[in-house]
Design a protein around this nucleic acid. Structure first.
Length: 418
RNA sequence: GUGGGUGUAGCUCAGUCGGUAGAGCACUGGGUUGUGAUCCCAGGUGUCGCGGGUUCAAGUCCCGUCACUCACCCCA
């Protein structure tokens, strides 16, 4: 084999026909956001490194060991965005969207980057569709955000996932709980790495997958049992609204997210058909983030949905439709016919019909093979005899039926037959 | 960063006891002059991941290395 270039480690290429399914999944998710009144925001894929270290949190793995960070030509520290919320908050503050009508409801779609060891469903460049509702702390908004994610996955056709929900408390009640949990964890015979994690972010120990650790923390105190009155009421209301919305959920009081900014409502969409990387989306409310990034003291709520993983889930469930790239393909017999079909293809495209031609002066048989493989519904067959008669053949490839129509009417006839 | 698995044609893979590499699919052309999917015929490619070692002889055995992959960790 020749020495050819390959894509960087852990970076997926999506090529036809899979790329059509990928685009479909992404647009289905963004459509769900649009249906709830979220406006599109287009942001850079790199930002000031400090935006993420301060926004996402210094104690997270994302910041400590997974960021693509480099110095640009002006010796500024730049980082390829590892998640979407910090950038949205930066833009909201910079453009004073928080001074307008609230909540500011925004959605985005694009690439994100984390330098992890790749494995099934985990890439170094991955795609997310995300939404953020900023500026109002209303449990109904939490429920809306969750429902939008759920609606997006449903619209793709997914059914094999569950929504896990919990509350992480807020600045009033979490510090006390955190101390309580740390006290509990300090008494356990944990290995060194886990002990370090217990100091840095004790909640994360509750989410450990190793059976021996799970057993150790089985009796650990849980945040949901130590919520302050305000957080408890908020959580109860979110659950009530979700029920109103018909969104099913299960409570998972041990759920922890990888980003430090979450408070109160926190959720994750988990799919069982994907192997180890089972989270297809997640999010929650973040009370302190905007102030942390130099903005007002305003709360927000949002999610990030994994497009790559949603695609894997859809493939695993077998719910993706077939995607064709063209509707009509012209099969020319001879030079004069080719010239005429080139013109007809232009007319059809202008009329909104996806049209391709068989190129390369191939034989009739090869032409029809190519037409068959194109996935087109109709083939336009044109030869010298038809030209003289002023006709063209319109063939339905699936059935083999062919009708002859006047050349002058071809666009109209094609549109009728599609 | 830590473990396991796998590297042979564009793809999926076979290759026995060491004897200089095969199948299917895909692709292209043809099967009588204007009709595809089935069928038949024909056509091509490999530094057997890479580097060393053992041997008369290595895809096959040994060592190293790289890549891919799955899992841990973490997460979309």
């Amino acid at each position: 084999m020749r020495d050819v270039f390959s894509a960087p480690k852990g970076v997926p290429d999506y090529i036809p026909p899979t790329s059509a399914a990928f685009a479909h999944v992404r647009s289905t998710l963004t459509r769900a956001a649009e249906l709830a009144g979220y406006g599109y925001i287009e942001l850079p894929v790199f930002e000031d490194t400090a935006l993420f270290s301060r926004g996402v949190g210094e104690s997270t793995d994302v910041v400590t060991k997974e960021m693509y960070t480099f110095l640009d030509r002006g010796d500024r520290s730049i980082t390829l965005r590892p998640e979407g919320t910090a950038g949205v908050m930066r833009a909201v503050i910079e453009h004073s969207l928080d001074r307008g009508s609230l909540p500011a409801k925004l959605y985005y779609a694009g690439q994100f980057f984390r330098a992890e060891a790749p494995q099934a469903g985990r890439y170094r460049q991955f795609h997310q569709v995300g939404i953020e509702a900023i500026g109002i702390d209303d449990p109904a908004l939490d429920a809306e955000v969750i429902a939008v994610g759920d609606a997006g996955f449903r619209a793709i056709g997914l059914t094999g996932y569950r929504l896990e929900l919990t509350s992480l408390g807020d600045a009033n009640c979490r510090p006390a709980y955190r101390a309580l949990l740390q006290e509990f964890l300090a008494k356990l015979p944990l290995d060194e790495a886990t002990r370090t994690r217990a100091e840095l972010n004790p909640l994360r120990v509750l989410d450990d997958k190793r059976p021996e650790v799970r057993a150790l923390v089985a009796e650990a105190p849980l945040m949901v049992d130590h919520l302050c009155d305000a957080c408890r009421e908020h959580y109860e209301l979110v659950k009530g609204y979700l029920t109103e919305l018909g969104v099913k959920f299960v409570e998972n009081p041990r759920m922890v997210r990888g980003l430090d900014y979450y408070t109160k409502t926190t959720f994750e969409f988990v799919h069982d058909g994907l192997g180890a990387q089972s989270g297809i989306g997640g999010g929650g409310r973040y009370d302190g983030l905007m102030a942390q990034l130099g903005g007002q003291e305003l709360s927000g709520v949002g999610f990030g949905l994994g497009v790559d993983r949603a695609l894997l889930a859809a493939q695993a469930e077998g719910v993706l439709p077939e995607f064709s790239r063209v509707d009509v393909i012209g099969v020319p017999l001879g030079e004069a016919a080719r010239a005429r079909l080139v013109a007809i293809a232009g007319e059809l495209r202008a009329a909104g019909v996806r049209t391709d031609l068989v190129y390369g002066g191939r034989s009739m048989k090869a032409g029809f093979k190519a037409a068959d493989k194109s996935g087109a519904k109709l083939a336009l067959v044109l030869g010298e005899r038809d030209l003289e008669a002023g006709n063209i053949g319109v063939k339905t490839l699936a059935t083999g039926e062919q009708v002859t129509v006047p050349l002058a009417d071809v666009v109209e006839e094609v549109r009728k037959a599609l």
